[in-house]
Amino acid sequence: MSDENKLSGADEFQDPLENYEPRQFDDPLEQALVEEEIGTIRHEPFTTISPDMPVHEAVKELAALHHACLLVAENDRLLGVFSERDVLTRLAFEYEEIKDRPVSEVMTSDTIYVYETDSAVASLAVMALCGYRHVPVLDLNDNLVGIISPQRVTEFLQHHFEQD
């Protein structure tokens, strides 16, 4: 195949994005939420526990750390979330019977997560649409790398607020 053939048709090429108008944002906060990655929101520190940890130890850990939730993981793989809400809905009246069982039996296992490369607003989407206040963050190899809380999101909002 000659070089002539290789380039034939090049003149007819039309860039499909040539008329693309980049999105206009009303302020730096909106722009940051859409264009920055979740990785730029503070997602550390976070605490992981083993799925075999007894419920009473997990409750003590939650209380001692003043965390709203703990991530249940094994070898950096997310298995679930054990939260204050799980304590309210699954343990408040049943604690004495369940306290020695493994936390994997009472954790929330259908956890919704985000990737660190998702846009910042994705974490808000999970919180707003799904009602999860704490959203685990994974890297692209599905390893657990952090957690986003509403407080960390507000930190992000305030940071971009002040740049005005």
């Binding site: 919704i112 808000l124 707003a128």
Partner: peptide, 26 residues
């Protein structure tokens, strides 16, 4: 805040569970 971004919010992939239970909290 999410309501301010209807486009971004509705197209985001949000994890492995396609069916959400009515839940608030975790």
């Amino acid at each position: 805040v999410a309501e301010h971004f209807p486009g971004e919010v509705t197209v985001q992939r949000v994890g492995q569970s396609p069916y959400l239970s009515d839940r608030e909290g975790a």
